[in-house]
């Protein structure tokens, strides 16, 4: 047993070292492409950290978002950045020279001080603290689900999740209000990409449904399922997916607001019936939560894919 603990301890220390050096390299490497590759690697290792911290729900979300979608988003942005304007290099590098030693050393000293101060604060926290574990355990039977994280997300603190859906929608509204229609790229002529897509997209959708369903009892749930669905959407967009213009107006908008809409309507209905915001009747809580999660999954998937597109989508047929 001791040897096992030792091996795990070694694993932890190596992992911490890797994560920290990756973060530092993301900040310090000169090349932006390299920084993004390192950031994706950082996300992968963060998912391992979540596993070590017994947080498989977060590991799933991180695997889908931190290591997957964010990387794809950054890569696409870098791609467009270099196609927009290659002249900036000169001006920026000229400005870099002006950065004197003091403007780098002072923040570095501040960084060390912050780490020391916060570290001291952390170490003076009590060794053992239960947090809200007992409260969650006590009320699990009334929550309608068996996975404690899902119970917190959709029931105990469901109101936060409602507002979170609004945040997601707001990000998209803000992106769209920046203007600019983005044409869906032409269907890719690359046969490898096409066949990859044909295999991967159905699998991703299937996995998404699985995560949604399993989320009630085991790690998984709407956010993870939605992220995987969003990844399927990103893959379709990358391979030049073709949608008719008519689906891009009303139906798309409807799916985008479905998650927050169902949440708000459910909240209002429960307020009328139960006299409380998002107070589920215990017997019905299970399917109500599943309904909310299904709507949220669709919206999250659609929103993430639309965010990846980065503008109001427009089909090429119209051109």
């Amino acid at each position: 047993m001791e040897a096992l603990d030792f091996a795990l301890g070694l694993f932890d220390i190596l992992l911490v070292f890797l994560v920290l050096s990756l973060a530092w390299l993301v900040m310090s490497s000169e090349d932006l492409f390299r920084a993004i590759v390192l950031f994706v690697a950082f996300g992968l290792l963060m998912a391992l950290v979540w596993v070590r911290l017994e947080a498989p729900d977060i590991a799933l979300a991180e695997a889908a978002i931190g290591a997957g979608l964010t990387g794809a988003l950054m890569m696409a942005a870098l791609d467009r950045l270099s196609s927009v304007k290659p002249i900036q290099k000169v001006a920026a590098s000229a400005q870099r020279k002006q950065l004197s030693l003091s403007s780098k050393v002072l923040p570095l000293i501040a960084l060390v001080l912050i780490v020391l101060g916060l570290g001291y604060a952390l170490l003076s926290l009590p060794e053992i603290a239960d947090g809200l574990t007992p409260n969650v355990k006590e009320n699990m039977a009334q929550s309608g689900v068996k996975n404690p994280v899902t119970a917190v997300l959709l029931n105990f603190r469901g109101y936060d999740t409602l507002l979170e859906m609004v945040v997601l929608l707001l990000a998209l509204l803000s992106v769209w209000s920046l203007g600019g229609e983005r044409k869906l790229s032409p269907r890719s002529t690359n046969p490898i990409l096409g066949s990859l897509c044909r295999v991967l997209v159905p699998v991703l959708i299937l996995v998404s449904c699985y995560l949604l369903w399993v989320g009630a009892d085991a790690p998984g749930g709407a956010f993870q399922a939605g992220s995987v669905l969003g990844a399927a959407g990103v893959l379709l967009l990358l391979s030049g997916w073709h949608v008719e213009q008519k689906y891009l107006l009303w139906p798309l908008r409807f799916i985008l607001i479905l998650g927050s809409g169902v949440f708000i309507i459910m909240a209002a209905v429960l307020l009328l019936i139960q006299g409380g915001l998002l107070t589920y009747p215990v017997a019905q809580a299970g399917w109500m939560i599943l309904l909310l999660e299904s709507a949220a999954t669709l919206s999250i998937g659609a929103t993430l894919a639309a965010l990846f597109l980065g503008g109001v989508p427009k089909s090429r047929v119209d051109q």
Binding site: L53, E54, A55, L132, T133, P148, F156, D160
Partner: peptide, 8 residues
């Protein structure tokens, strides 16, 4: 079990 509230 770890505290599920921070996870959420």
């Amino acid at each position: 079990l770890p505290d599920p509230v921070p996870h959420a």
